[in-house]
Amino acid sequence: MLRLDGLRVRVEDREILKGADLEVQRGQVHLIIGPNGSGKSTLALAVAGHPAYEVIGGRIFFEGEDITSSPPDERARRGLFLAFQNPVEIEGLNMADYLAKLIEKRIGEKPLTPLREHVEEFVMEKLGPYMEALGFDEGFLSREVNVGFSGGEKKKFEILQMFALRPRLAILDEPDSGVDVDSLNVIGRLLSRALQEGITLLLITHTGGLYRHLRVDRVHVMYDGRIVASGGSDLFERIQESGFEVVIR
């Protein structure tokens, strides 16, 4: 589904990814772990197509197509989703209007009118159960995108957007950092549900907090801009016990 061939990425004159190889199969859960600064977020942002992350070598394939130079919106329309580690605040952009637009993009349906009540009704109809599961009430829809959200709310809102868009592959950049135990459980449950609904998951984490909530198929260790080891759950257990040193050498 997703394949990176020797991906090299430069950010502001510094080479961060130095030839990363990765393959993620449909319907699976993959985990990328690695110490801070190893290039995990760079990998996520480069795959999503951030313009400041310049690909200087290698290729990105998604569903068999080379998307290395596709703009970010095209990648999203192909079914790629990124849950941001640091979601961006968009002042003045109403949550209901925003979510309605994402839903419209996917299914081509619109609210009855642009009136607030119709937009909220539309969003509740399409996403109500997910909002409830994530602990968002209707008042949440009258807020502005990510503005004044707590860390946990931001992470959960990324998950909600994933369900609004229903991508083929979701890359989640540290969905477990900075969230409390309750939120972590909620996120874990919702990710299992996403998997059941056919969304392939690529999780990036350095805490491994979500590991116990999901049936992880494959674990990749990132270090200094490369994937240095890949394996099953035994690899994860080994690192939990002895640290990254076991695979870095």
Binding site: A48, G49, H50, P51, P71, P72, D73, R75, A76, R77, F81, L82, F84, P87, V88, I90, L93, Y98, K101, L102, K105, R106, Q161, L165
Partner: peptide, 19 residues
């Protein structure tokens, strides 16, 4: 902000309009 919205599948024009 632009990248965030475009990564949701919104075109550059739609993203700028929203911002």
């Amino acid at each position: 902000k632009l990248f965030y919205l475009m990564s949701r599948g919104l075109s550059e024009e739609e993203a700028i309009t929203m911002i």
